[in-house]
Design a protein around this nucleic acid. Sequence first.
DNA 1: TTGAAAGCGTTACCAG
DNA 2: CTGGTAACGCTTTCAA
Lengths: 339, 339
Amino acid sequence: MTVTIKDVAREAGVSPSTVSRVISGNSRISEETKRRVRKVMEEMGYHPNMNARSLVVKSTETIGLIMPRSAENTFLNPFFPEVLRGIGAAAQERGYSLLLSTGRDDGEKKETVVKMVQGKQVDGVILLNSRIRDPILAYLKKQRFPFVMVGRPLEKNITYVDNDNVTSAKEATRYLIEMGHRSIAFVGGNPEYTVTHDRLEGYKEALKEAGLPYHPSQVLSGDFLEEGAYEAVRALLSLGQRPTAFLVTDDLMALGVISALKEMGLNVPEDVSIVSFNNVFLARLSSPPLTTVDIEIFQLGYQAVQKLFERIHYPEIASSHTLIKTCLVERQSVRRLEK
Amino acid sequence: MTVTIKDVAREAGVSPSTVSRVISGNSRISEETKRRVRKVMEEMGYHPNMNARSLVVKSTETIGLIMPRSAENTFLNPFFPEVLRGIGAAAQERGYSLLLSTGRDDGEKKETVVKMVQGKQVDGVILLNSRIRDPILAYLKKQRFPFVMVGRPLEKNITYVDNDNVTSAKEATRYLIEMGHRSIAFVGGNPEYTVTHDRLEGYKEALKEAGLPYHPSQVLSGDFLEEGAYEAVRALLSLGQRPTAFLVTDDLMALGVISALKEMGLNVPEDVSIVSFNNVFLARLSSPPLTTVDIEIFQLGYQAVQKLFERIHYPEIASSHTLIKTCLVERQSVRRLEK
DNA sequence: TTGAAAGCGTTACCAG
DNA sequence: CTGGTAACGCTTTCAA
């Protein structure tokens, strides 16, 4: 049925070892036989069985991707296809494949990861969600299996790729302040992610720097893609300190906020200004187009793969991280406040 | 280093075959030894090597996913994470893994597919893009390899999962007509996809049914997520037959249209109404929330996997397709036109 | 109910 | 430069 290395060998009148050698290329084989074997492979439509190969070389040339639990909204964020694009590009360049974790809850996820790792299906793993106290992370560490995280982990000695979230949030807030805003609310996502903390930190720093007071009542956090958004936003606006601007940690959440504001008869940017994060594809498509912090999602993914290869090939070197630069892109969701 | 079936066997005082049997479970093994072996496996942290297993059983329990070329915008559409969620759920239920195609152009894609298929990395394949005359499709057919498409192919005898796009477009158009619109424009996506054709067809049928004229000048198609959108929309509106409503084949594109309209000083739904397709996550987050046709993307993915298993396990049965129902969800992008 | 041995398709080592 | 052989870790007859 399927043509193996032996078939090719027989047909070409050489030994299987020889065929194997011309496949890997590097060995010293006469040009003559090389050509002949190649021709036979072509004619017979031969392609090596990756399982057999992996079994002996102990490397699968595939990397495992651990995604957010698919039950979560995170999974639906357009952030995700974009990292995937970066990861895919880098993997492709090295001839690596991508194996995805399925699994909706932590239990299922753990199972698929174990299967990947111990089942020898992957050479390394990329963790796509930086949950605090992630059991998967603990497992990978204990196994001393090569992995890198996208997003900053709380633990030490872990290789990761991230943006400098506190600085970028600080700059974004500073921008709002320069635009004349004095009362700025912070809308963060799931507090289980470090990115939420970091951006809040940057926000606070900018406030402090400008001599503006920090009001805990002006920070909202949680899953803002769900229903609750409207009430939360309204509660916030009915406060004495009514904010004139919002710093929102995610473009999608910004859409939710804009929508909630609109229901209250408030327009962006006329009545309220918004700066968000991520600059996903739809940020420029929305109404109004969002002023948002570009975090180079593609690079996040691309660099994660680079770092992973580092860990795979030089397991002895110390863990490290790379920070991807960010950049505020001005569109139309912020209004300059006159004095 | 890594613990194999032999280690477990030795430790448990049985033969490797026995261990193999307790793993597969089904064979007749005394409860006594079963328990003992299980215990040893647990203690030693044994997990089967999938490569070795695949090599002999000739099945990898993983399905290959062929994605749109990652250079395309399609790739960034939130449609994608949602199908993936459906596919992942179904795969997980059966203990299957997912292997992703990387590859930015057709050449690279073909290569990764060949590696998956001939390299025996997957048991079957799901094609995520229904391009017309897809070379991958031709290859898969020739190889007689189990695969299913998400989206209707032009070719015959191919198993696929899709919505009834002509009917759903017809109903959506009819809805607009019932809302009092008489001049409706059609904005379609990439004409290389059958879905674009089908929806255009449904649009025409509804027009005809209502005795409204079909004006080719009122149909736009192409990659509307890119810059060109603004000019195209403006050109359309400067026509004699100025449309009061748009039927847009994708939510993301609808955002683009809304944005273009706004630049021209036109509001949705006050000045122009819009019905789009897909009901992706952000449809209800946008301003205004989109009236859109829900196509059950999750089901599309989920059912694709079901069908794939059918093909894998019963290769002899004829190709077939399943149609997922659609449903118009009314939100706020359509205004009723008074007589 | 269990064990021995062959074999899955490769690669790699050792001879020649 | 090339061939023979063992080994990778597992499943699956065939015997016992």
